[in-house]
Simulated scan of single mutants.
Amino acid sequence: MTARIDHLVTSGTFTLDGGEWDVDNNVWIVGDDTEAFVIDAAHDAAAIEAALGGRALRAIVSTHAHSDHIDAAPSLAEATGAPVLLHRADLPLWQQVHPDRLPDGYLADGQVLEVAGVPFKVLHTPGHTPGAVCLYVPVLNTVFTGDTLFRGGPGATGRSFSHFPTIVGSIREKLLTLPPATVVRTGHGDSTTVGAESPHLDEWIVRGH
């Protein structure tokens, strides 16, 4: 069976540094008719489980630990038995949201995960958060970037645990080196491609955050 990418948008709140914002999140489900990964369990565990359609959930892969990307992860894990995976550098953020439950496993740069015969390469891309990761899936001509790279520029770096020069370095070294036709599937909003974003790197640096 051929692997595919399913897309779900869930809505809720993002809280950090004493602020709260209403947000819509992209939830990506990648797999075949039998098994799948969920990338970022945002807001609504029941809706995500329904979108799985009975497929075995092999892992909940978190691109980073901002509340809007992980708030439904424990509930979805409990419902499905799937482990929650996160980069260890984001544990301080995770524990702000889920102080009584740790992730089930930790992601590392260069690690390869596999579901439905499709390999996912973990790229550690700090800047938006210390443990932000992107997931490169060459078989599907896709990179899942969470909040590291959007259509039109890098993710926000104006809050705690974030750093603009670091995110620009991550994008330059880990993402813009991918094939230009690679589809960038983001944590919020529309998708783009590596080639569409590459020419704007210098503009981002001048603009700063």
Rank of each mutant, 00 (worst) to 15 (best):
L8I: 04
E49N: 13
V143P: 05
A82C: 13
L57K: 00
R151E: 14
G81R: 12
F14E: 03
D40C: 08
V137D: 06
D6R: 07
L52Q: 02
T177Q: 10
A42P: 04
V168N: 04
G31F: 07
D68Y: 08
L135A: 08
G158Y: 00
L135V: 07
L201S: 04
G117F: 09
F150V: 00
A77Y: 03
V30A: 11
S11Q: 06
G110E: 09
A36L: 10
I171W: 03
D6I: 03
G155M: 07
V115C: 12
G131W: 05
A108C: 08
G18P: 02
V206H: 14
R185P: 04
E78C: 09
H69T: 04
G12R: 00
V137G: 12
N25P: 02
A116E: 05
L93I: 05
R159H: 13
T34D: 15
E203I: 10
D40V: 03
V122P: 08
V143H: 13
D33E: 15
A41Y: 00
D90T: 07
P179E: 08
S191R: 01
P130Q: 10
H64G: 09
D24L: 02
A156V: 11
A72S: 03
D22P: 09
G189C: 06
V139L: 11
H188T: 13
S170Q: 01
G54L: 06
W21L: 13
H200K: 14
S198W: 12
T186M: 08
R88I: 11
A132V: 09
D6P: 01
H64C: 02
T125Q: 08
K121A: 13
L16T: 10
A77P: 08
F14R: 01
F161D: 08
Y106M: 11
S11L: 00
G18L: 10
L93P: 00
S62A: 14
G19P: 05
P126T: 10
A108L: 10
G31L: 09
V183E: 10
P74N: 11
